[in-house]
C-alpha cells in the first residue's frame, strides 16, 4: 500500500533521514519507535508530504506521490493524520471540525457528513460534545476528536505522530483505547510513539529507527523480546 524507497530528508546541512526503505501492507499496524531526533516524526510527515523529501520515492496505492506532477491533495484525502498537538480548529465546534473537510473537499452533502460525524463521535465516546469548542475539552478529548476528524474523510491509512506525548498521563489510556479499536477494525496504521506497552500489544510490526535509518524491524516479540541490533538493545534497556 505504501512503498518507500531510499528516502532522504535534510534541513540545510542537517541530514535527518538517510535512506529509509519500507513497505507497508494494507491492514498492517506499523509502530515506529526510536530515540528523539532519530527522524521518526520526519519520516511519518514525509509519508503525506507535509515534509518534502530531499530525494527518494514514496508510492501510495501504486501512485508515486513524490512525483512533482502528482496532486498531493487527492492522496491526503486518503491518508488521515493525527498530530501530537491535536491541531483542532479552535474557531469551529467539534461537529464543524469533523464535517469541514468532507463537505468542502469531498463535497459530501451536509446531512450525510453530519451523520458520519455523529457516528464517529459515538465511536470515540464523545457524542455529547458535538457543539463544544475545542477550548472546552480536555487533552484526551481533543485527541479523540482529532482522530474522528481524520476518520471522517474515510482514509485508507492513518498516520499518528506521537498522539499521546502531549497528554496528561491519566488521559493516555482513552486515546490508546480508540486507536486499539481502530486497529482491530482492520485500519492500516503507521504510529510513531513512545508508548512501548501499546506498541507491543497493538503493533503487527515494530520499526526501530535511529540516526535517520531503520536499524531493526520485526514482530513485537522479535524486537522487544530478542533485539539483534546493539542500538535497539541500548534503546530498549533505557525505556523498558
Amino acid at each position: 500500500m505504501i512503498n518507500v524507497k531510499d528516502l532522504h530528508k535534510s534541513f540545510g546541512k542537517l541530514n535527518i533521514l538517510k535512506g529509509v526503505n519500507i513497505e507497508i501492507a494494507k491492514g498492517e499496524v506499523v509502530v515506529v519507535i526510536g530515540p528523539s531526533g532519530s527522524g521518526k516524526s520526519t519520516f511519518l510527515r514525509c509519508l503525506n508530504m507535509l515534509e518534502t523529501p530531499t530525494s527518494g520515492e514514496i508510492a501510495f496505492e501504486g501512485d508515486s506521490i513524490t512525483d512533482k506532477k502528482h496532486n498531493i491533495n487527492l492522496t491526503r484525502e486518503k491518508m488521515g493524520m493525527v498530530f501530537q498537538q491535536f491541531n483542532l480548529f479552535p474557531h469551529k465546534t467539534v461537529l464543524q471540525n469533523i464535517m469541514l473537510a468532507p463537505v468542502k473537499v469531498k463535497k459530501v452533502p451536509q446531512a450525510e457528513a453530519e451523520k458520519i460525524a455523529l457516528d464517529l463521535l459515538q465511536t470515540v465516546g464523545l457524542a455529547d460534545k458535538k457543539d463544544a469548542y475545542p477550548s472546552q475539552l480536555s487533552g484526551g478529548q481533543k485527541q479523540r476528536i482529532a482522530i474522528a476528524r481524520a476518520l471522517a474523510m474515510q482514509p485508507h491509512v492513518m498516520l499518528f505522530d506521537e498522539p499521546t506525548s502531549a497528554l496528561d498521563p491519566e488521559m493516555v489510556g482513552e486515546v490508546l483505547e480508540v486507536m486499539k479499536k481502530l486497529a482491530e477494525g482492520g485500519m492500516t496504521m503507521v504510529i510513531v510513539t513512545h508508548e512501548m506497552g501499546f506498541a507491543r500489544e497493538v503493533g503487527d510490526r515494530i520499526v526501530f529507527m535511529d540516526d535517520g535509518q531503520i536499524m531493526e524491524e520485526g514482530t513485537p516479540s522479535q524486537v522487544f523480546g530478542n533485539p539483534k541490533n546493539s542500538r535497539t538493545k541500548d534503546f530498549l534497556s533505557k525505556v523498558l
Partner: peptide, 27 residues
C-alpha cells in the same frame, strides 16, 4: 496562526486556498 493549523487542514486534503479561507484567515 499556529503552523499546526495549516498542517492539519492540508493533511485533510484541503488545498492552499481553502486552508487560507476556512482555517487561517478567520483566526
Amino acid at each position: 496562526v499556529d503552523r499546526g493549523q495549516a498542517e492539519a487542514a492540508r493533511s485533510l486534503g484541503m488545498g492552499k486556498g481553502m486552508t487560507m479561507r476556512y482555517i487561517i484567515l478567520p483566526q
